[in-house]
Nucleic acid binder design. Sequence first.
DNA 1: GTAACTGCAAATCGTTTGCAATCGG
DNA 2: CCGATTGCAAACGATTTGCAGTTAC
Lengths: 147, 147
Amino acid sequence: MKKLEAIKQKLTAAGLKATHQRMVIMEAIADMKNHPTAEHLFKVVRKSNPSLSLGTVYKTLETFVSNRLIAKVATRDGYMRYDPRTDHHGHIYCTNTKDLVDYYDEDLDNLLTEFFKKKKVNNLRIKNISIRINGEKVDPVKEVTIK
Amino acid sequence: MKKLEAIKQKLTAAGLKATHQRMVIMEAIADMKNHPTAEHLFKVVRKSNPSLSLGTVYKTLETFVSNRLIAKVATRDGYMRYDPRTDHHGHIYCTNTKDLVDYYDEDLDNLLTEFFKKKKVNNLRIKNISIRINGEKVDPVKEVTIK
DNA sequence: GTAACTGCAAATCGTTTGCAATCGG
DNA sequence: CCGATTGCAAACGATTTGCAGTTAC
């Protein structure tokens, strides 16, 4: 399978052993558009890999995070979710459905960059400025989309 | 003491019994500029009120939050912190010192309001858009200030 | 072959809960 | 007085840790 091969390379490139567990976890997180929790991911991956343990999922995700292969996001209510995108972007959090949706808009990013050129924050080495939109999904069945 | 009297009124106005515990907790959180955790608050308040229990601190804070007397914020690493400010504002999070600092700039707020008039998010009833600045405190001893 | 990785179970830690005793209005 | 609130201890749930056995390279 082509996809697993690509994942294997990604892992190797990061200096990680390309174990079966890591590959299926990486594949799953990339496919799931939900920014899953470790538990959620575990349930999904376990179906095809019954011997996989939850502890391994946690360890693997942590390894991925520290190697910048994925990102870790805390939601408004303190749960950790994992994000296959590591590039700079914000999130929309639906308080009713717990959906976490990527948000990026180039215009907004430029706007913010310009803004913080003028307004400085003293004594802080800014790593990133992220926008977080909280709201309620109107139709919980449909997706949230950006105009 | 004047301050406690004002707090008492605030509690009563919210329809809550003005117990001693609630008053000292409210006083402490207003004085601490750190957006404390429940545990942190507990340690501080306990000094003058040794019989106070941690469970009460949690319950009290939760009561305050649901009565909009304070706000609850999840930090980047998933811990809950309590914020005496309930008006709309963002936060600066110092990843090295775990400091959580209020951030509000009217110009930025107008900018964002304008922006989201044009760019819509479909199927979402936006409750708030918050800005979150993550960075490293350069001199950990000094404060982070806004220019 | 050997260091890295996995699985399992126990431990940890922030937070919540149940309940009897107590307190505020 | 009576319902709301407290204190205490036990329960909980997400995450971590320790370690012996197993795997990738």
